[in-house]
Simulated scan of single mutants.
Amino acid sequence: MNKFLNFFIKIYEIWQSGKAGKIGTSLLGFGMILVASGASFTFIIGYSDQKRNVNAAVSSSQNPDMVLYSIGILLIIIGALILIDTYRRLIANRTVIYFGNLLKQGDSDIPYYAMEKNDQLNVTPIKLGLIDSYKKTEVIEEYKHLCRLFKDRTDHIDAKKVYIASLASTPYLYLLGTLFRNGHIQNEILDYNRDLDKWYRLDTIGNNLSNCLMYEDNFTTVNDKLNYLCNSNFESIGIALSYTFPIDKTSIPPALRDKTIFLTHGLGFGNDKINNKAAQASLLNELTVYIDKLKSFNKNIHLFVSAQASFNVNLGKRYQDNTMDEVKIYNFNGSLREYDWFISFNSGIVK
């Protein structure tokens, strides 16, 4: 009985999965109607009254319509083949979603609804460790644990696609992103809309954005400030990204305040301002160029980031083992209103 019910549940799920599923089930159903309409049948209605010794019967029959019947059989076969093919592809395309709401704010349920419909049918949920992402030691230990899993692809060895949905500190999200830096598997980074209290996929299409100076400090353009820092005798250079909230100079460690380039974009401050892939990619492309240029002058890079969760993960994905070397990513302490600790990442080595 359970197998019978599961079969129809799976057929319903396939029907929901997309156009192919809807076409297959429609052809199957329409074919059954044509077969029933074209088939031959006879029915008899009888009446009997023993007391009055009366017996009567009325019969009616319909000869088969071979054209309707044949078309119906053909549609059933085609519909069944489409459903079987759709089912096989869905089973083969297993997806995994890594989820961790470490900030313990808003929606704490795994956001299946934010995934593409096809990916929801054969998905394995994996909850990330419930750590305090604002404690450096716990962040490092969790990264080492995840690194071992991802090295062997323990949890997603046969997955065709991986979703990541996580709210946590910037260093944690950055490290999470570095696990996908080699592009060995298709992945989708989800973000969280605090106003709507729901997760969402980034739009693919959007307007490109460009970084601009937040504090001019006698410099007209980003390249002017960048060239100054490259040609200076400073060994360490800070890059402060003010996308969600403005980063105040006083929140930066004193030794780096005059050695930091403060950047923002033209959309203003606020959550979910860069909610599409095109906008994030354009900002990250520019940032990669800045880091590469500074590294070519043997500068140590310190990152201070105020951005939405998906950007922090994508920032980690952009790390390049062969060019970036050591990068330090800082944590913002909301109570102290300052960046109080950092993690150092160097080609997979964290400290």
Rank of each mutant, 00 (worst) to 15 (best):
P253C: 12
L146S: 10
N187Y: 15
L229A: 01
K351D: 12
I343C: 04
L229E: 01
K51L: 10
W15L: 08
A114C: 08
F180I: 02
Y134I: 05
E235Y: 10
D248E: 14
R89T: 06
N233A: 09
N233Q: 13
T221K: 12
T260R: 09
I349V: 05
R318Q: 13
A92C: 04
L83C: 00
S232P: 02
N331F: 07
Q120Y: 03
S40Y: 11
P246S: 10
L229Q: 00
H265K: 12
R257S: 01
N6P: 00
I157Q: 14
I301F: 05
I33L: 13
L336T: 11
I349E: 12
I97C: 06
P171S: 11
Y174K: 06
K277P: 06
P171E: 01
Y12I: 04
P254Y: 14
K317I: 05
R337A: 12
S166R: 09
S251T: 11
V123C: 15
F311R: 10
N275P: 05
T250S: 13
P64H: 07
P111Q: 02
F332M: 10
I189L: 01
D203H: 10
L103T: 15
F342R: 03
N211K: 13
Y113P: 14
A278D: 07
H265S: 15
D152V: 09
S242E: 08
K273F: 03
I247Y: 02
S17H: 01
L68K: 15
S251Q: 10
N331V: 05
K249F: 04
N312T: 08
D109N: 15
N208W: 02
Y112V: 06
S26F: 05
K144S: 10
L90G: 04
A57T: 12
R257L: 00
R318A: 13
G177T: 01
K225N: 12
K51M: 15
T220M: 10
S344V: 03
T178K: 04
E141R: 14
L128R: 00
G79C: 03
Y98E: 04
N93M: 00
M66S: 11
N93Y: 10
A80P: 00
R52G: 11
T250A: 11
G24K: 00
F8I: 08
L213I: 00
A255F: 10
A92I: 04
A307Q: 06
I239K: 04
A281S: 07
F304L: 02
R201K: 12
E286Y: 10
Y47F: 12
F262G: 02
D158A: 05
L102A: 10
L226N: 08
Q62G: 14
I252G: 08
F7V: 04
S335W: 09
Y228N: 09
I78Y: 01
S37R: 11
K151C: 09
V305N: 12
N275W: 06
N300L: 12
N271I: 13
L83W: 00
